[in-house]
C-alpha cells in the first residue's frame, strides 16, 4: 500500500539554533493530514526539510517506504511530491500558462502536459481566460489559483500545501479549502499546513500540532478539536 510519508526523529537546525526537535509524523494516503501551529513553531522549516531545501541535521524522511532524507529538491519532486510554498511564490514575470508549465517541468510528454493543463483550466476557468496575462499583475486570489494549479501540474502523489489561506478574504479561503478537499478526493495525499484551525480541522482527517519545534499533540480531527492543548492554544 502507498505510504505517502513517514518522518522519524527529525532534527533541523539553522546554525546553532535548533528549530525542530525529534519530530515524528505519518502522512496517510487518500486523506488530508494537517499541521497546526502558531507563527515560529517550525512549520515552514519542517516543509523545507521535507522538500530538500533545508537538509535536516538528524532523522529520516521516507516517501512510500523509500528514504528521501537528503535528496536535492528536484529529486524529491521527481518522486511525486509537489509543494505549494508559503506566500505562493508564483513567477510574477511569467504568464499564467508559463507558470503552470513550470509546474510540469519534469514531465516530458507534450500530450500529458496538455491534458493536465486542460484539467487545471477546468478547475480554474478564470486561469483559462487569463492564460496569457503576466502572473504578477493578477489579484491575490487569482495568484493563489495559479499557485494551486501549478502545484497540480506535476500530477503529484503527495501535495504539501503551506498556508494557502494567508492573505485571502474569507470567501476565497473557503473556496480554496473546497478545492483542496477535491484534490484529496481524486486520490492525492495532502499535507496541509495552516494557522486557520477551524476550517482546517473541518476538512482534515488527522492532524499534528507543532509548538516550539516539537509535536505537542496529534490525533484525528475530532480528537484535536476537543484536545485541551489545542483548545488552550487556539479556541481560548
Amino acid at each position: 500500500m502507498f505510504r505517502p510519508m513517514q518522518i522519524e526523529h527529525l532534527h533541523v537546525a539553522y546554525g546553532n539554533a535548533c528549530v525542530l526537535n525529534d519530530v515524528n509524523m505519518e502522512i496517510g494516503p487518500k486523506r488530508i493530514t494537517c499541521l497546526l501551529g502558531a507563527n515560529g513553531a517550525g512549520k515552514s522549516t519542517l516543509i523545507r526539510a521535507l522538500v530538500g531545501l533545508t537538509p535536516p541535521r538528524r532523522g529520516s524522511i521516507f516517501f512510500d517506504g523509500e528514504d528521501i532524507t537528503r535528496l536535492a529538491p528536484h529529486r524529491v519532486v521527481a518522486k511525486g511530491i509537489s509543494c505549494i510554498p508559503e506566500g505562493r511564490r508564483i513567477f510574477s514575470k511569467m504568464s499564467v500558462e508559463e507558470n503552470l508549465l513550470m509546474g510540469a517541468y519534469q514531465e516530458k510528454s507534450r500530450g500529458e502536459i496538455k491534458a493536465r493543463l486542460d484539467k487545471v483550466y477546468d478547475i480554474f476557468p478564470r486561469l483559462a481566460e487569463r492564460r496569457g496575462q503576466l502572473a504578477g499583475t493578477m489579484s491575490g486570489g487569482e495568484q493563489a489559483m495559479v499557485s494551486i494549479g501549478r502545484g497540480l501540474m506535476p500530477a503529484p502523489r503527495l501535495m504539501i500545501i503551506d498556508e494557502p489561506s494567508l492573505g485571502l478574504s474569507p470567501a476565497l479561503v473557503k473556496e480554496n479549502f473546497r478545492i483542496i478537499r477535491s484534490i484529496c478526493e481524486t486520490g492525492t495525499a495532502v499535507f496541509l499546513v495552516e494557522q486557520n484551525v477551524r476550517q482546517t480541522l473541518a476538512i482534515a482527517s488527522y492532524g499534528y500540532v507543532l509548538s516550539q519545534g516539537r509535536v505537542i499533540a496529534q490525533g484525528t480531527a475530532e480528537e484535536l478539536k476537543s484536545d485541551s492543548q489545542v483548545q488552550k492554544a487556539y479556541f481560548g
Binding site: 522538500v51 531545501l53 528536484h74 510554498p85 511564490r89 513567477f91 511569467m94 513550470m102
Partner: peptide, 15 residues
C-alpha cells in the same frame, strides 16, 4: 527565467 525570478520556487518545480 524561473531560477532568475525565484531560485527556490524553481527548485520546487523540479528544476
Amino acid at each position: 527565467r524561473a531560477v532568475a525570478q525565484d531560485e527556490e520556487a524553481a527548485q520546487l518545480m523540479g528544476v
